[in-house]
């Protein structure tokens, strides 16, 4: 069991894959980190020595990668800023609709979530006339 930066516990995978379990490190960054730390990407995470682990940690910290809590906070702040100033993107985030101009008549299920059918509820106070 290897721990890198706090709570990350990548299991029996190759280290270049295991590093991606850190929020904010994807394929490209994982490769970069390993190149910086001068570690063979094909080693399994459990086979790393203490020294290699600390090399990786150093590579991540010196590389100024924004990861985990900091990254989540940064994203949250951006959303909050956009919602606070009521700009178009902020409003779309508030309403849970697609932000980048996609159609919403159909599709957009990722943002809208599962389909919910809304029936027509007649106004009980409405005048009843001859239809």
């Amino acid at each position: 069991m290897a721990r890198i930066i706090g709570v990350e516990i990548p299991p029996q995978k190759r280290i270049d894959i295991a590093l991606r379990y850190i929020y904010g490190i994807g394929p490209t960054n994982a490769k970069e980190v390993l190149a910086r730390a001068k570690i063979d990407p094909s080693i399994r995470a459990k086979d790393l020595t203490e020294q290699q682990l600390s090399q990786i940690v150093h590579a991540i910290q010196d590389g100024k990668y924004v990861i985990e809590g900091d990254l989540r906070r940064e994203i949250g702040m951006n959303l909050k800023r956009m919602q606070g100033i009521k700009c178009y993107r902020g409003v779309r985030h508030l309403r849970g609709l697609p932000v980048r101009g996609q159609r919403t008549q159909t599709n957009a299920r990722t943002r809208k979530g599962p389909r919910k059918t809304v029936g027509v509820v007649r106004n009980p106070g409405a005048k009843t006339g001859i239809h």
């Binding site: 009521k86 809304v118 009980p124």
Partner: peptide
């Protein structure tokens, strides 16, 4: 940002109760 981002051009209509 641009000025237009703060002046929406569509009215947001919702389905639901006509109360």
């Amino acid at each position: 940002h641009r000025l237009g981002e703060f002046s929406l051009t569509r009215t947001f209509k919702k389905h639901g109760a006509h109360t």
